[in-house]
Design a protein around this nucleic acid. Structure first.
Lengths: 100, 100
DNA sequence: TTTATATATCTAGAATATTAGATATGTTTT
DNA sequence: AAAACATATCTAATATTCTAGATATATAAA
């Protein structure tokens, strides 16, 4: 677990917000039109709408979060859904409390 | 506990190194010339020597870490000693594992 | 009380992060 | 096959961070 790498991701309020929103998608996003669950997370467009930032910015953010393995993407038709990677997030908070 | 504020500090390897070194000063630094303990932490010069960065850079780093309450400075004569603020560090890792 | 030492602050250039518009790619619909 | 839609990638402008040299300040030593 690389503290610096993960901290760079968490050093931005929007990215922290996204991670928190994805803990409870049903409370933070409208239902998807094709599916009636959030098992694979939330589509990029909904996340973009909620942040108010541009599509390219959010796509870039989600890509960086995916590179750090904090989120997992799943393609469903023309949508990409992102969900939290709970194992990695848990492993990070755990290792931080041990290492730091 | 502000995740973004603390993460900005931790998003730099040198600052993370400093925090880790200060966990065990006796293993990471030579003894001070005036005192024979590390109860108030380590002087700026020793930290600077170990990082290899400039004096002004390290002073700036330590100041930012102090602003975030991650370290506590103590003046002894012409030296300033910095030690970890264990309460805040613990509170942060705790709140991160709850909030994130 | 001048000089030396340790640290802090100021200033500025280089590197990196943020952000959006334009364009490309992949998928669905017509 | 063309048009429409969702997302990804490219490019570039702006903002922030990194970093060191110069200078200021505080304390100690001569």
């Amino acid at each position: 677990m690389n503290i610096v790498e993960i901290s760079k991701i968490l050093a931005n309020q929007t990215r922290v917000d996204i991670l928190k929103w994805l803990k409870n998608p049903e409370d933070n996003f409208p239902p998807h039109q094709d599916i009636d669950h959030f098992d694979d997370g939330v589509c990029v467009g909904f996340i973009q709408d909620k942040t108010g930032l541009s599509q390219s910015t959010i796509s870039t953010y989600l890509n960086s979060m995916q590179n750090a393995k904090l989120v997992i993407p799943t393609r469903h038709g023309k949508w990409t859904y992102y969900r939290r990677n709970e194992e990695v997030i848990k492993a990070y908070t755990q290792s931080l409390s041990e290492e730091l």
